[in-house]
């Protein structure tokens, strides 16, 4: 698979194998993800925008709360998760929006792969962008707010929460791709559904920063994990319905 990755990034055509089997399915999903990452490496329009927006948001929040909040650690959990959600929306709508803008969505759907494999490929590339965003935002929060978020449980919550966010976000991006005003539609659809992830993430981050015992906070990790699993299954099951009219 690593050879495929290198080949995919260098622009060599990915060999498309038809037929069943789990590894064949994975390879198809991977081909879609590699295509997205390759396009992103050339155009540099999604991940870079997300990262710059994320950094900008940290600075804006820093200015907004400076001298107003006695301890910056009090607002950091909320800031972290709000930035992940808002910067994420910027990138998520591009994953299918770009295909519609360039009239390539029909071509993608005509490829000999299952619709769910396209979804999982897009999910993988979105996850990559989101993790990249977090990689840039966390150190800047450390500098601006003097709060160290590089703690095992916070990172684990961020990992699980990002997976759930990307699952639902990629799904809704596919859903809104064809509607008018999809850029503004996606956050309106997505944010109310992400409330459980947001609440779990903020509470866990706040609990760890307050130094509360970890044993009382594992419930949040369980909620995040179960959320991820249920929406993974639901997306796999329902995603075929999105494109069955095309």
């Amino acid at each position: 698979m690593s050879r495929d990755l290198l080949g995919g990034l260098l622009g060599e055509p990915v060999k498309m194998r038809t037929g069943g089997g789990f590894s064949a399915y994975m390879r198809k999903a991977f081909a879609v993800a590699a295509k997205d990452v390759r396009a992103e490496l050339r155009a540099k329009e999604v991940a870079s925008t997300m990262i710059v927006f994320g950094l900008l948001a940290v600075v804006i929040f820093g200015l907004a709360f400076d001298l107003r909040v006695p301890q910056s650690a009090m607002v950091v959990p909320g800031i972290l998760w709000v930035i992940v959600l808002f910067a994420g929306v910027l990138g998520l709508h591009r994953s299918f929006g770009a295909e519609v803008d360039r009239d390539t969505l029909a071509g993608l759907l005509l490829a000999p792969v299952e619709p769910s494999a396209i979804y999982f490929g897009k999910l993988a590339s979105n996850l990559l962008y989101l993790f990249l965003l977090e990689l840039f935002v966390l150190p800047v929060i450390l500098v601006m707010f003097d709060t160290n978020l590089f703690q095992f449980h916070i990172l684990l919550a961020l990992f699980l929460g990002t997976i759930g966010y990307a699952e639902v976000g990629t799904f809704f991006a596919a859903l809104t791709a064809n509607s008018r005003a999809r850029e503004s539609m996606l956050p309106v659809l997505l944010l109310p559904v992400m409330v459980p992830v947001f609440m779990a993430g903020v509470s866990l981050t706040a609990g760890i920063l307050d130094g509360r015992p970890v044993s009382g906070l594992t419930t949040w990790l369980v909620i995040l994990g179960v959320f991820d699993c249920i929406f993974f299954v639901a997306a796999y099951w329902i995603v075929d319905l999105i494109w069955d009219g095309i």
Binding site: F172, L175, L189, M194, P196, F227, I230, A234, I238, L241
Partner: peptide, 19 residues
């Protein structure tokens, strides 16, 4: 599809808020 998918998240919201 949106109604069904969004409906799945409502129990999670309740559970999270309950804690």
């Amino acid at each position: 599809i949106y109604a069904l998918f969004a409906f799945l998240s409502v129990p999670f919201t309740y559970l999270s808020a309950r804690i």
